[in-house]
Design a protein around this nucleic acid. Structure first.
Lengths: 205, 205
DNA sequence: CCAGACACGTGATGC
DNA sequence: TGCATCACGTGTCTG
C-alpha cells in the first residue's frame, strides 16, 4: 500500500544457520499478501479508505450485498420459469414467451358465469372476473386473494348492464405463492360458484 | 487463526515514553484485522485452506464469479421483461348468452398489442383494452369513444407489469349509434395502432 | 505531538 | 529436518 521503507527491527542476529533465508521467505509471503490486498481493493467499488481493515470490511459488505442481489434475481428468474412451464403445458391458450393467460371458459361446459381470467407478467398478475351482481362477492374474491397470498395492488369494480359486475384486479405474487395460473383461476371460479349458489338460494341477491 | 503465543522480538526497550501503549494499539489493530479475516473466511464457500493469502485469493475468485452471475441474471431478467412487453396474447373468444362479445385477437395476424375486446349487454357496452403504457393513449381512446357516440359511464386504468396498461370501460350506447360490436373493436384497435406507431416514432413514448 | 497504519525481522508452531 | 504460516514488538511514516 505504501513505499518500502528501510526496515524495522532488523539486527543481524542469526539464531539459526538459515536466518537470512527465513527473512527472505517472510518477505515473499508479505509481498504476496500485499498484492492480494491490492487486487482485492481494486475490484471493490466505492472504497473510501484503503486500510486493510476497511478493505476487508467493505469486501464483506459488498459480498453480502452481491449475494442478496443474486438471490433476488434468481427468485425473479425462477418465477418466470414457472410461467414458461405453464405456457409449455397449455400452448393452445397463449403464445408468447413469458406472458401467460388462462381463462376458465370451457366450451364443453356451458356455464358462462362467473368467468375468470388471469394473466401473469413478472411478479404481477392481472385477474379479471365477470359475475352476477351479488352482494358480498367482492369480499369473497378478496378472501380468496388473501388465501392465495396475492397482494392486491389495485382493484376496479364496474357495473355492466343491469345485473353484471366486471372486476379487474392487479395483484402481486408473493414469494410463498407457488400456485399455477390455472389453480388461481380455478380456485377463484369455484369459490364464486359456491358463493353465488348459496347466496341466491338465501336471498334475492 | 491460531493460539496466541508468548511473543517474538519483545525486549523491554522503550525508546519512547508511550512504548507500551504503542504495543497495545498494534495488538488491537492486529486483533481487528484477524477478526475481519475470520468473518470473511466464514462467508466464502468452498474454502480448503485457511491461509490469509488463500482466503484473499478465493475471495477474489468468488467475487468475480458472483459479479458474473449477477450480470447474467440481470440480462436474463431484462430480456424477459422486454419479451413480456412485446408478447401478450389473448385466448380464444367467448360467447355469452344474451351477451355478445368480440375480441380483436386474430391468430392469423401476429400482432398482439393493442388488444381490444368489447361485450354488449342491453344498452351497455363493456370495452377492454390492453396496450403499451403510452402517454396520450387514454385520450386517444376517449376521442374514439366520443366519435362512436359511446357515453362513458365508468373507466378504469390499471398498470400491469412494468409497461402494460389495462383499460376497462363501461359505456352506454346512444340511439344514434348503429355500429356493430366488431366495428367498435376494429375502430378502437386501428386508432391505437396508428397512435402508438406514430407516438413511438416521435419520442421515447 | 500523537493516533493510526505499515513493513520489517524474529521466534514459535504445525505438518 | 525443512518449510510455510503465524503473531508479536518495534521503527517509521503520515495527517
Amino acid at each position: 500500500m505504501k513505499m518500502k521503507r528501510s526496515g524495522g527491527g532488523g539486527a543481524f542476529s542469526r539464531t539459526t544457520l538459515h536466518g537470512q533465508e527465513h527473512v527472505i521467505a517472510e518477505r515473499k509471503r508479505r509481498e504476496k499478501l500485499s498484492q492480494r490486498f491490492i487486487a482485492l481493493s481494486s475490484i471493490i467499488p466505492g472504497l473510501t479508505k484503503l486500510d486493510k481493515a476497511s478493505v476487508l470490511g467493505d469486501t464483506i459488505k459488498y459480498l453480502k450485498q452481491l449475494e442478496e442481489r443474486v438471490k433476488i434475481l434468481e427468485e425473479e428468474v425462477a418465477t418466470r420459469t414457472v410461467e414458461s412451464a405453464i405456457f409449455a403445458k397449455k400452448p393452445s391458450l397463449q403464445r408468447g414467451d413469458s406472458v401467460v393467460s388462462f381463462s376458465s371458459y370451457d366450451p364443453l361446459i356451458d356455464q358462462q358465469l362467473p368467468e375468470v381470467e388471469a394473466r401473469v407478467s413478472g411478479k404481477n398478475v392481472l385477474i379479471k372476473v365477470q359475475c352476477e351482481k351479488c352482494e358480498g362477492c367482492i369480499k369473497e374474491v378478496m378472501k380468496q386473494m388473501e388465501e392465495m397470498n396475492l397482494t392486491t395492488l389495485n382493484i376496479s369494480v364496474l357495473a355492466f348492464g343491469s345485473s353484471l359486475l366486471d372486476v379487474t384486479i392487479v395483484a402481486q405474487i408473493e414469494n410463498e405463492n407457488c400456485l399455477t395460473i390455472e389453480e388461481i383461476v380455478e380456485k377463484l371460479r369455484h369459490a364464486l360458484i359456491i358463493f353465488i349458489g348459496s347466496s341466491s338460494r338465501r336471498s334475492a341477491c
